[in-house]
Nucleic acid binder design. Structure first.
Length: 571
RNA sequence: CGGGGAGUGGCGCAGUCCGGUAGCGCGCCUGGUUUGGGACCAGGAGGUCGCAGGUUCGAAUCCUGUCUCCCCGACCA
């Protein structure tokens, strides 16, 4: 490609909207451009990267036994009503009506459609296992698109679905997909770690996210330096500080004028936070939920949502608190009636706690579960934080931020039961197929690859996904022999099978061209100039290296091939 | 949805408080001089100041409404 006619321009300054390196470089290098919040066009160079990532995904999914298909983005809303997700995913669904006023959604994901397909194609256990995948545009009306390509409303996703006769067979497909993911991210130059994840509204059991650990990531990950335990904050468990047994003492009311927070109570009464009971108010399906958790812990809303099977759970606002007669700052489950109480298991085993008295400026001492209050739901609903003991080995956990590149999970029979996708087993009985699903955000891999591979000058494309192998820079095009030599190198490299970006722009200084080459980040830069010709040919330098070598013009393709091979590029 | 910030030429910004013919850097076009790390000279093009009302002799500037974008939170297979 000749840069003189490239449909994109590099920018010296990044647009103000970008605040992470990958986002700034993407815009400065002219890879993509935003049309609306979370909606992007891909320009030629960026699109080549997307296609390279897709190709790697295809190769690895095929190797894992996957079969590529293509499903429609336009899907009947009825199918979503059948699965129950028309309601549970209502806020992100992009919906429309056709001219006959029939309801449709633009697919945010394809479980419903793939199950429908499965029903028509598979009736027998003999037809399984199945692993199908597609690379497709998804639509989600995200509450807040952000971070360049990291959270967008229209995006390319590779989604794969497996169907098996039982959970053991599912595990084989799951492990195959998991292995493929490791290879895919590796080839794309994005270091990832699998972390335990919450399966969220989609349902299902085991679930892991592939995270690229970086400060600009939007997810919080807990990692154990002792045993390697790794989990998303939403999912992470931790050992809770266990309190020694104490005889329950008599309930005692104390005046606590103006003390509303745990910090204020701790300071005023001289008790440690773990000897207090914290109250947090939520609302689920229109009804208030009183959450009781020990004062040294925080509520993990994902866990709470799962414990209550209430995807619509949200914090109660001040007005709601008043309306339900709750006394913020002095609320407690002691003597509370008419409100559902959920307790973290920490609250049960902790004796003689300080808790609210359900009237202003008063608390109780020596509150004990069972004697003074009970909860209708008891579960681990606590948030693991930096320093929390690892659930496996007790080592203090560390936190890191991460960008989610992919997600694998075992769905089981959630969708195949709801949508009645069953097969006939060996005994002739109908069974729901056991399903897994596996997603990769292609645009996220694109962003992650830039984030993981750049320096102060620009992008350093991993050779496997570089839009071009060679950035050919011609300097002094009006000088004798330069144009001819550069054209010759351009032709020879292309004849040898390399993708070449040829900076044939006239009247630009060497500095501009070199800076653009560094910004655009191809693995190998070849320079043809009066100086290089005088010293015997063309100059080769790889993007991350410091030194250049001069090679005779005729030898450029062979030498370029050797350098690229050494960099790990596969032609 | 709650909180904060911002919309002025392709990009980055000033001008708004205090109303009076819209400016700077980069980029772009023409000519010339240059050419190994973001050149120089001369000339030039390009803006309904997000949009709609209002106040005023006069609005980028004041008032009202509205749209959009960014950040934090909520939300998020």
């Amino acid at each position: 490609m000749r840069m003189s006619h490239l449909f994109a321009k590099t920018l010296r300054q990044a647009p103000a909207e970008a605040d992470t390196p990958n986002h700034q470089l993407m815009l400065r290098a002219g890879l993509a451009q935003q049309l609306a919040a979370g909606v992007y066009s891909y320009l030629p160079v960026g699109w080549r990267v997307m296609r390279k990532i897709e190709q790697i995904i295809r190769e690895e999914m095929d190797r894992a036994g996957g079969q590529e298909i293509m499903m429609p983005a336009i899907q009947p809303a009825e199918l979503w009503a059948d699965s129950g997700r028309l309601a549970t995913m209502a806020d992100v669904l992009v919906r429309f009506q056709d001219r006959r006023e029939r309801d449709f959604v633009l697919g945010p994901t394809h479980e419903e459609v793939v199950v429908d397909l499965f029903k028509r194609q598979v009736q027998s256990y003999r037809d399984m296992p199945i692993l199908v995948y597609q690379i497709q545009t998804k639509f989600r009306d995200e509450a807040r698109p952000r971070g360049g390509l990291m959270r967008v409303r229209e995006f390319t996703m590779k989604d794969a679905y497996s169907f098996d006769t039982d959970w053991d067979a599912l595990d084989a497909n799951y492990q195959a997909a998991r292995a493929a993911y490791t290879r895919i991210f590796d080839r794309c130059g994005v270091p990832t770690v699998p972390v335990l994840a919450d399966s969220g509204a989609i349902g299902g059991k085991d679930s892991e996210e592939f995270m690229y650990l970086t400060e600009v990531g939007e997810d919080m990950i807990l990692l154990c330096p002792g045993c390697g335990y790794a989990a998303n904050e939403e999912k992470a468990d931790h050992k809770k500080h266990e309190l020694p047994f104490e005889e329950p003492r008599a309930l005692e009311e104390v005046a606590t004028p103006g003390r509303k927070t745990i910090e204020q109570l701790v300071e005023f009464l001289g008790v440690p936070p773990y000897k207090t009971l914290k109250a947090v108010f939520y609302e689920a399906d229109g009804a208030p939920v009183f959450v009781a958790i020990r004062g040294d812990l925080e509520v993990n809303e994902a866990k709470l949502r799962n414990a209550l099977k209430a995807p619509g759970l949200a914090l109660l606002d001040d007005e709601g608190v008043r309306k339900h007669g709750l006394v913020a700052g002095s609320a407690s489950p002691v003597g509370l009636t008419g409100v559902r109480v959920v307790a973290d298991d920490s609250a049960l085993q902790s004796p003689n706690l300080v808790a609210g008295a359900n009237k202003h400026d008063a608390h109780y001492r020596n509150v004990n579960y069972g004697r003074d209050w009970t909860a209708s739901v008891v579960a681990d609903i606590s948030l693991a934080r930096a320093g929390s003991p690892c659930p496996r080995c007790g080592t203090p956990l560390e936190t890191r931020r991460g960008m989610e590149m992919g997600h694998v999970f075992k769905l089981g029979t959630v969708y195949t039961e709801r949508l009645q996708a069953s097969y006939t087993d060996e005994a002739g009985a109908l069974q729901p197929a056991v399903m897994g699903c596996y997603g990769i955000g292609v645009g996220r891999v694109f962003a992650g690859a830039i984030e993981a591979n750049h320096d102060e000058r620009g992008i350093i494309w991993p050779p496997g996904i570089a839009p071009y192998d060679v950035h050919l820079t011609a300097l002094g095009l009006d000088k004798p022999g330069v144009r001819e030599s550069a054209e010759q190198v351009y032709r020879q490299l292309q004849d040898a099978g390399y993708a070449v970006l040829f900076d044939d722009r006239e009247d630009l200084s060497a500095g501009v061209k070199f800076n653009d080459a560094d910004l655009l980040g191809m693995p190998l830069r070849v320079t043809v100039s009066p100086r290089s010709i005088e010293s015997g040919g063309a100059e080769l330098k790889h993007r991350s290296g410091k030194d250049a070598e001069v090679v005779a013009l005729a030898d450029v393709p062979a030498r370029a091939g050797a350098v690229l091979a050494a960099l790990g590029s596969r032609k």
